[in-house]
Design a protein around this nucleic acid. Structure first.
Lengths: 151, 151
DNA sequence: ATCTAAATGCGAATTACTTGCAACTAATTT
DNA sequence: AAATTAGTTGCAAGTAATTCGCATTTAGAT
């Protein structure tokens, strides 16, 4: 129950009502360490939650910065919780495998970027992702087209 | 004609036939300095090119690394030429304004990232984008929801 | 000039996501 | 604790972006 109450608090602090669907969606995020898609969330939910609710919830959580989109180079959006330790990913262009990159260098350059900018007042977010081939795909198809399965 | 021949060469070197549609698509990329969407390309083309051709061409140019996707946080894909000077972007969460970030720090850390990785053999690409508020949007809506127009 | 794999155009299909609206419910007010 | 109300949901239909199947065409090799 402790956890559920934390989520309730997180939701209220972000200006939302703490409804069962939203708590369930956040629980799915807590459970999955990799970025997940709307469909993956829908599949893991107790099946009485409508997809429109999931999409609406994702959109508004994104708007408030509770979750952030991660571009896995698939054809649909993936998200992960924003309030976890700043990190990035390496994503395999062959099979979609994801590995975390634990260090974040971006903070160190963000101020420079902002000051060098002519038109910007503020930087709120950033993405840094690496794309390559995992060891197993590097053997299979050394030229790296995407041919393994991806979700 | 020089330019067109360069594009022909680029296409053939990448393993494609140099068809008029593909040359036209690459010319649109050369003309636009910001990342562009499939629809923007379709609008700028002489109107006899089918959208399926544009989408297919984008997909295969992306596969070969001739163009790369840039996530502008809109609801559809944007691309830019990959073989230009390495750079990144700051994107306004309010109005979608894009400014180039001319220095790239990523090369300096890429080797470290690869060596720290357990499962990866190779890094081929990366994305680094900053999201924030431009000076004009920072005045209009200091809490930064997206409400200006975006394309 | 001929040949063939690759590319195109067309329409239909699919995927990912959104919207309108009536019913419902969390949290505030009394 | 009941009443209130603004935010939220489910459903079904809708839209935007992208893809597919297939007959036809074309670039570039022979």
């Amino acid at each position: 129950m402790q956890k559920k109450d934390d989520l309730r608090t997180l939701l209220r602090k972000s200006g939302y009502k703490a409804t069962p669907s939203r708590i369930a969606i956040l629980e799915v995020f807590k459970k999955n360490k990799n970025p997940i898609s709307a469909q993956e969330i829908i599949n893991e939910l107790p099946s009485d939650t409508d997809q429109a609710t999931v999409y609406r919830t994702l959109k508004s959580l994104k708007g408030k910065g509770v979750i952030k989109p991660i571009d896995l180079r698939h054809n649909h959006a993936h998200y992960e919780l924003a309030n976890i330790v700043e990190h990035h990913h390496i994503i395999c262009l062959g099979c979609g495998k994801i590995e975390d990159v634990h260090h974040c260098w971006v903070k160190e350059v963000q101020d420079t970027v902002l000051h060098d900018s002519k038109h910007f007042a503020e930087i709120r977010q950033h993405t840094l992702e690496f794309y390559g081939l995992c060891k197993s795909c590097a053997k299979k198809h050394p030229d790296g087209g995407r041919s393994c399965s991806t979700s």
